[in-house]
Design a protein around this nucleic acid. Structure first.
Lengths: 339, 339
DNA sequence: CTGAAAGCGCTTACAG
DNA sequence: CTGAAAGCGCTTACAG
């Protein structure tokens, strides 16, 4: 099949190519009748403007980039990214933007990808994930003046636009809930310590534990994988004064932690209460289903995409707050059997 | 920052734009010395050719499309897709191709996306997932003459190129293994029945069970979600002559099935053996870890991408076989306690 | 081996 | 309200 061009539409409509362009893009310059006729013909012959030609003349790529900087083995397991992507994508495709995805090994590679995308004019802007403390990507992006929205914060995002949600409040709520149930020895299995949101959660955990006088509270760091999450849990549960409740920084580690507890003969929730972050179907897959902190991740992604499109459109690069995570109590939390 | 163009490189090198193009694309037409000088300058000023300009003049998009036709809620949980994407992406980016991703609601929407991509010249080819029996996408793609590789089969892929793996052999092997352990009442929780690979597995299951005289073997269909997988398992385990082994068509349903068994007071593997497809970290997250049929999914994705690039490059649209899934025995399978 | 030029398919001022 | 034309930044025959 021969792809129709704007010239084909113009010929059949008996107008100039310019008129077709105006009609298709909703610009003034054609009468309503002509516009209707042109649109009908375009639909009839199945015309879609060449993204390349449009990009070249309009200096806009019609695409948004997302670089995922996680090892392949971690990428697949966490439902978080797919959920985020599906939300991002829904918003973008509704506005006729394409999503360009690239998996990168580290921040150097990621920055190189941003430079290339910028030089190639391949994307109009990017979404940045997994914000770290002292994140070099921020300065690189600012230097390129490539429109960007950082998913994370608050803080550490420089002059870039960002979308954040209040993890500190959510974590505090979870700890207060566990304390209300009667727990005193609460442990937290954190994610990678140099991620900004890990830092925020760690600080919030320390603060609420101090306020409530939980002197035995402890955070140990892990890497989001089931292997590490299980290993760390095994160590925690082997200690003399083992915790009666553990809060995990993601769903995968929480599920692994549950397995370890059961393998060690502990009953969840009687002997051990478990709280997961990133509420996902994974949390409902296991028995007992896990109490979890979560929110609507596809909506978060859609929100981020909307914000990015606004920045690309010239809106100021603001910091926007998304909804806070909510605690959903399920079968994995209860008053401790032996206090 | 101003983006450098080919003219900037040409000016600094004191040559024509054509010479720069030849040098950058490894074409003959420039001396080795000139080529080296041009490349050095391009690197120095950070020049990347505009993807739009290149696409427009070379009539090649430099991108490959992947439309994912699954409801958002299912998408996130199965590690399969992210693993596949990471493999696809690794291969593509090594060849400087971009991956354009779109989530669609159904096949009509997916076909519409293919038409649009084709009309917009946005992608040079597409990867097709979740092949169904009588799949309308095949004819649509053939009509558009859009290069494509179908991930699935064998069979049902029309004239399109495809990459398939022998699920029948793998399933047969799994059943023989369970029978060797002493199982006679084996059930299978299948995926969506109109998917081609479900059909293949169902036929293979029926064939091996008949050959081995397993008259009580049964396949029940599900939808890959944990909810449904759990529900179906509950029904199977409540029947008078409950199965002593269950084979699940994906990892998520297998994990859900394990939970249900444990919730019903059954011990895995003594009372019930479980085999999962799509071996993934999920299978090692639970206790006992699940015996699984699996293979290297990122490698599968990379293979598919390589095949597509070959087809885009003009190679004939062949059917290529990937490695067969392997059975990895873990703690969820054992001889049945009561035969 | 190199340069000048046409052309890819759009968008967008600029005349009429 | 409409048409003719320039231009986006490349690639690629075509001369030299």
């Amino acid at each position: 099949m021969k792809r129709p061009t704007i010239a084909d539409v113009a010929r059949r409509a008996g107008v100039s190519k310019g008129a077709v362009s105006y009609a298709l893009n909703g610009q003034p310059g054609v009468s309503a009748a002509t516009r209707a006729r042109i649109l009908a013909i375009a639909t009839e012959i199945g015309f879609s403007p060449s993204s390349a030609a449009r990009a070249l003349s309009a200096a806009t790529a019609g695409a948004v980039g997302l670089a995922l900087c996680r090892p392949a083995r971690t990428l697949g397991v966490e439902p978080f990214f797919m959920a985020l992507i599906s939300g991002v994508e829904a918003e973008l495709s509704a506005r006729s933007y394409a999503l360009t995805l690239q998996v990168v090994a580290d921040h150097d590679a990621e920055i190189a990808v941003y430079r290339r995308w910028w030089g190639e004019r391949r994307v109009d802007g990017v979404l940045v994930c997994d914000l770290r403390t002292d994140d070099r990507r921020i300065a690189a992006l600012q230097q390129l003046q490539l429109p960007a929205v950082v998913i994370g914060g608050p803080g550490g995002t420089g002059e870039l636009a960002s979308l954040w949600s209040d993890d500190a409040v959510a974590l505090t709520e979870a700890v207060e809930y566990l304390v209300a149930l009667g727990h005193r020895r609460i442990a937290r299995v954190g994610g990678l310590p140099d991620l900004r949101h890990t830092e925020i959660r760690t600080d919030a955990f320390a603060a609420v534990c101090q306020r409530l006088g939980l002197t035995e509270a402890v955070t140990v760091f892990s890497d989001y994988t089931g292997e590490e999450g299980g290993r760390v849990t095994r160590r925690l549960l082997s200690s003399a004064a083992r915790p009666t409740a553990v809060i995990y920084d993601n769903d995968v580690m929480a599920v692994a932690g549950l397995s370890v507890a059961q393998e060690m003969g502990l009953t969840v929730p009687d002997d051990l209460s478990i709280v997961a972050w990133d509420d996902s179907p994974l949390c409902r897959l296991v028995h007992p289903p896990l109490t979890a902190l979560g929110r609507d991740i596809p909506a978060y992604g859609a929100h981020a995409a909307r914000h990015l499109l606004a920045v690309i459109g010239g809106q100021p690069a603001t910091r926007v707050q998304d909804e806070s995570p909510q605690l959903t109590p399920r079968g994995s939390t209860a008053p401790p059997r032996d206090k």
